[in-house]
């Protein structure tokens, strides 16, 4: 009888000890890894969401982005010329939120990046972003080039 109890206790100690160890390992591994992690899919998403335009007039580019978003049915929520960003929401039964930001690339070009969220889903479909960039490129009378 006594023997059985000690055996069981020993078993439990083993399990508890290994659980404790695995928690320690988990604690070490995940959070730090996530902070600066860049995986392939994130790089791919960035290239899906970005285009380069031959323009250096930030004000004109931002104003054209605002006009394009309005053509697409967005209400503008925020705009900041210093930061170079515009956010808007389209409501059509669903809620589509989008932030578009611009930054200079060299002296003669600017990179436009947009990211959209449909209800609670992040939009990752390249064709959907392509529609936005082709509307923007028509409004700017400029070609949208893919980022290298």
């Amino acid at each position: 009888m006594d023997y059985k109890v000690t055996a069981m206790n020993r078993n439990y100690t083993h399990i508890l000890f290994s659980l404790f160890l695995s928690f320690l390992l988990l604690g070490c591994a995940t959070p730090q890894k996530n902070i600066l992690e860049t995986n392939e899919s994130q790089l791919k998403l960035r290239s899906i969401q970005s285009r380069v335009f031959d323009i250096n007039d930030k004000n004109r580019l931002l104003r054209t982005i605002i006009a394009t978003m309005q053509d697409l049915g967005f209400v503008i929520d925020k705009a900041d010329e210093t930061l170079g960003s515009v956010s808007g929401t389209k409501r059509s039964g669903y809620t589509l939120r989008m932030t578009v930001s611009v930054r200079p690339k060299g002296d003669k070009q600017m990179v436009v990046r947009s990211n959209a969220q449909y209800n609670l889903i992040t939009v990752e479909d390249p064709e959907i972003y392509q529609e936005f960039f082709s509307a923007l490129s028509k409004a700017l009378f400029l070609d949208a080039q893919h980022i290298e």
Binding site: G73, A116, A135
Partner: peptide, 22 residues
């Protein structure tokens, strides 16, 4: 339904009419 419709960022055919109204 859970996926994003393809045309959410497509210029709608009535966009010119809407632009005139607004």
């Amino acid at each position: 339904q859970a996926t994003v419709p393809k045309d959410v960022l497509k210029l709608p055919p009535q966009s010119l009419e809407v632009r005139q109204r607004e």
